Simulated assay, not measured.
Amino acid sequence: MTVQAVRTVLGDIDGADLGVVFAHEHLLMTGGWPVRQEPDFRLDSVDSAVAEVGPARELGLGTVVEMTPLGFGRSPDGLRAIAERTGVHIVATTGFHKSGYYDDLHWLHHYPVDTVADLLTAEIEAGMDVHGLAGPVIHRSPARAGIIKIAAEYHRFGPGIRRLVPAIAQAHRRTGAPVATHCDKGTMAYELLDALAAEGVPEDAVILGHIDHDPDPDKLAALAERGAYLAFDMPGRAKYGPDSEIVDLIAHLTDRGLADRLLLGSDLARRSYWTTLGGGPGLPYLLRTFVPRLRAAGLGSTADAALTGNPRRALALRRG
């Protein structure tokens, strides 16, 4: 297999140029039904995003994987502006969140699998639609997506999601873009990995998101042993669990020789998480507070791998 470049909103770059990577973040969610229903999701200011990224950039941040999918006001041109103003690379996302976030008349529930695959493929190869494929007319941004998202609900796929798996797999095979999953509260990781594998997606081309919300070390080790990347994106959000729990999980996986399957992020998808908007823990937390805690626990080499070496492989476009 030939490992190729990573696709960012400003163009393809060599993986060696990514620097420190936050593997699951949200910088812009400007509208759509989920944002209207939950105003705390509304992240609609490029200026605020630039201000939030800045201190993390000063601490060494080089790349953000922006996981906002279709239906949330993704704003590809806004992401280009943030990348240009901060100097931070941004890998953007096409694909879907949980089916409950989409009206039952939404095309994802009705279009043929091949048509869905065509739409996702074009977002990666030609450019993302500035209106998030809300249709019927497509206006492409120069920004291309570099990752494909699929999301399950808590302990179930949810209406329409299972039928999207073949479309996601087709788009992966055509473009080589990695696949990222939303594992609600850490559930459905096995099921999503199995379903994608059955459609020909290599397990090492899959990033399992929110996986640390279910802090079962043996489960996580089994998933990593299959080759999937585990995105630990809970640090700093104490309402879900303490950082000590995540440190212990990372130590366990390191002891089992699985440090090469780990990624780190913080998934700050709410206004109330941003220090620039009066909340916290804020984007710098990962490098300012959590990573030093890993180093103090003797996990410095694991932290370095999760932030630099592992993302180079996980995010690479692959063909052949």
Rank of each mutant, 00 (worst) to 15 (best):
S99H: 03
G78D: 10
V65G: 04
I211M: 06
E25N: 05
R144M: 07
P284A: 11
A167V: 02
A221E: 12
S48G: 04
L286Y: 02
D248F: 03
G160H: 09
R295G: 00
V116Q: 01
L193M: 15
D212Q: 12
R226C: 07
T86H: 08
S272C: 12
I147T: 09
V247R: 03
I124Q: 02
P76A: 12
M234T: 13
S48W: 09
V247G: 04
S244D: 15
A316G: 07
T93L: 11
E199G: 04
L230C: 04
G200Q: 10
T276A: 15
P178N: 14
V64C: 10
H252W: 10
G95C: 10
G227L: 00
G241H: 10
T63G: 08
D243T: 10
R163T: 00
K219F: 05
G227H: 01
L70P: 00
D40T: 12
G278R: 10
L196W: 03
P136L: 05
V165A: 05
S272F: 08
M128G: 06
V113Q: 04
I148P: 01
A143D: 13
V91S: 07
F41P: 02
H172K: 02
A296F: 06
R226E: 14
I207M: 15
I161S: 01
T302R: 02
D47T: 14
L223W: 01
T63K: 09
D17L: 11
G132N: 12
A56W: 05
G298F: 10
T30E: 14
R288Y: 08
A169F: 01
E123N: 08
G176N: 11
G186R: 06
L315W: 10
P159G: 06
F290L: 11
G160A: 12
R7D: 07
A195I: 06
A145H: 07
P136T: 06
A205E: 13
R256S: 03
R42Q: 14
V137K: 07
G257W: 00
H182Y: 15
G279V: 13
A49L: 08
R261G: 00
V50S: 05
L268V: 05
Y240S: 07
L133M: 13
Y111F: 06
D77I: 02
T302H: 01
L220W: 03
D260T: 01
G280K: 12
A269Q: 05
I147Q: 10
L230I: 03
Q37M: 14
T308L: 12
G300R: 04
A314S: 11
T276N: 11
S99G: 14
R80C: 09
V35Q: 07
V53Y: 03
I250N: 00
